[in-house]
């Protein structure tokens, strides 16, 4: 393939690369939407079938920890965006510190999630093994907690993978002289990171809010 080295051409090629990566990432996110969509479908079907059991399950979830976690994720999205802006301005130090903050906040989210999980294990509210031996829980509550673990688990897995990729990006970028050339990578990854936030925005009301009053 021939390519001339004019400035205009290279700008065009950079724009083309960005558009290609952007399209690719959005298509990937479309597939992710259907992935979580299957889980939400199961959730809605059983909420429809067992409204009281699901309400009881929601009440068991810690609202304060959930709210804090939601805000943490949104803060991480803010830092991700700031990191990208700084990179576009070729401010390497600022960009990397924002990205590190983003990863740190992601880890904090996971930390709080593990705290919630351990609370549940203590109360035997986990699927498999001895499940809720003490009380007579309504039918469907077991399904609620099963779905709770699967949905937040799949979400957490996506977050973990995101943190891993972010760590790798931070490592690679810290060894590059100029951050400005890598904005396409950051921008494309940023779409994925915001998407994780997006999924949580719908997970949060489903698992922590809806039906607190039955």
């Amino acid at each position: 393939m021939t390519s001339s080295a004019s400035l205009e051409d290279s700008a065009l090629m950079a724009e083309n690369r960005k558009r290609t990566a952007e399209l690719g990432m959005w298509i990937f996110l479309a597939s992710e939407a259907l992935l979580f969509g299957g889980l939400f479908l199961a959730y809605f079907v059983y909420r429809y079938s067992f409204p009281q059991a699901f309400a009881a399950g929601v009440r068991e979830n810690d609202l304060i920890l959930g709210t804090i976690n939601t805000i943490i994720l949104m803060l991480s999205a803010l830092f991700m965006t700031l990191g990208i802006l700084a990179a576009e301005n070729d401010n390497k130090k600022s960009s990397l510190s924002c990205l590190i903050m983003t990863a740190f906040l992601g880890l904090t989210f996971l930390g709080i999630k593990s705290l919630e999980y351990s609370h549940k294990f203590q109360h035997h509210l986990y699927p498999g093994g001895v499940f809720m031996p003490e009380k007579n829980w309504p039918v469907g509550e077991r399904i609620f907690f099963g779905l709770y673990f699967v949905m937040t688990g799949v979400h957490a897995l996506h977050l973990l993978v995101g943190i891993g990729i972010l760590a790798w990006l931070i490592f690679v970028l810290s060894h590059k002289p100029r951050v400005r050339d890598s904005t396409v990578w950051l921008y494309t990854f940023g779409l994925y990171w915001h998407y994780i936030d997006l999924i949580w925005i719908f997970l949060f009301p489903s698992l922590y809010l809806l039906g607190r009053f039955g």
Partner: peptide, 21 residues
Amino acid sequence: TPVLAVTLLLMIVERTLHIGI
């Protein structure tokens, strides 16, 4: 395809953890 992935995942989770779905 993603729906297949999540469906088989749910089946596997049901098989190992008996969540009841």
